[in-house]
Write a protein that binds this DNA or RNA. Sequence first.
DNA 1: GCCGTTTTCGGCCCGACTGTTTTCAGTCG
Length: 583
Amino acid sequence: MEISNQRLAKILRNVSAAYTLKKIGNIFQIRAYENAADAIEHSTAEIQDLWQEGKLSEIPTLGEKLQDYLDELFTKGKVKHFEQVEKGIPAVVFDLLDIGGVGPKNAAKLAELGVKDLEDLKKKIKSGELVSKGFSAKIAQNIMSGLLDLDQQEHRMLLPYAFAQADKILNYLKKNPDILEVHPLGSLRRMAATVGDLDFSVSSEKEKEVVEYFCKMPGVSRVVDKGENKATIVLTSGIQVDLLVGKPESYGALLQHFTGSKAHNIKLRTLAQQKGFSLSEYGVKNVTSNKLQETRTEEEFYKLLGMQTPPPEIRENSGEIEAALKHKLPDLVTFEDIKGDLHVHSNFKIENPSHGAGVDSIENIIKRAEELGYDYVGIADHPPGFTAVSREQIIKWIKKRTKFIQQIRQPSESTKSVRVINSLEVDILKDGSLSVPDEALAMLDLCIAGIHSGHRGSRGEITKRLMRALENPYVDIISHPTNRLLNERESSDADWEEIFKVASEKNKILEINAYPNRLDLRDDLVRAALSFGVKFIINTDAHEISQMDNMRFGVAVARRGWATKKDVVNTWDWTDLARWFKL
DNA sequence: GCCGTTTTCGGCCCGACTGTTTTCAGTCG
């Protein structure tokens, strides 16, 4: 049985709620379950995978006891202790917890009043039954809007989508002359693969006026909260947006505080506590003198703690605080370092394609690469499907395409033009062989290989397939290695350490695919692969030229995985790249 | 229940808003 991180977090939150309701243990035991749920929910690795590899202890907040419980859960599908503590609590209580604003106490109270499920609750609020049975009208109203929000929120937003929405809001905010600075916050600023709601901070002397201005933004459907210096709204699209306004003299602390992550901040505050400081969004307080030191910038804030400022992308309490204290933060790869995109699909004519072709011509792709300031671009179409087309036909098609590319790249011999790389993205078949014969692969400049079917194979099967592809001398790059699709499909299960080891030995490149719902290789696996000396390439896998702009989201994944410029081959200049790929 | 440059006990991040609370409980980020 597979248990997703989200489901796992929910199971632990249910236990926490049961502890609360039955008054089992103290507040810290209750919080321990919530802390673990948070950590699991925000983990980029699949917890069940870690369990299989015996690495549960790598997740902070999972101590001896919780590890035992998870072991029992994954082995037997249930946990005796959990069942015991939840005994006697109606199942509906745990469903009610999903409503924003409803915690254990209110959930239990609702169940007591005979609420059967979420639909029933909606009915009872509309009919006034809830109020007549003792709930205040205001609380009933809040629960109702929580219910409506729950209906709207299906998935977390994909990072590029969230960025597009955020840009509109940023543009609106920047128009107000009272606003001195504005930043995205939270998972958006940390460039996590998915984003729950959109948070922004603003530096201004006129806090109240800015909050008013924000609440009047076009597209606001509802103002949820409004305070002196903060507000929460819901847009007509259902997206929740938070705004926090701070004075310029303390803006650094505000920005730091709400960028998170939660785990990063908790660790930071624990550390500060030992040094006699208390941290908040207002600044650094000396506990002895009770004096608050304000900070204009994040850099000042971290400096007061004697450390470097970690880039937002790596603020996950995964070693960045220790590195910053030693002034040894890595020099992460940047978008400006990128010199080319080697995985773009064109509309080159093809019969019986194995997978979706691109919509733009090779000429237009080259033109776009020039506009982006790239030194090189790789055209990597899918070949014809090997089952529908004969071996001879595939070879013939590749010959024709190779000739076509050679013709249009003639001007690129001049120094100012973009170099064009003749490539294909071939399938790694069920047995690990490729969908294109070696004879045809020999005609290409380089070969990208990826799994495009049977993603749900067993750990052994997937590992074997990838291994065999890595052994193939024609394969240069493995595309989107885990094959996850965000909000749709989990990563394939494989022995990643073994794969990283072999990839490093054989000088094979792993792709960080910047396609919005892939962002694959995942950030945590990038970090793991780095320790084996694996090199990466960040590609957009664009199927239309506008998607070539997604590069920066792939860069974000690399940064979150602590990759530096030298680890990413498409930051290299043409000479180094050509030498590596023997072009 | 977790955790450790005060390690196996004794702490545990910090502050906000809402409701109806006249000093606090519940919930959230």
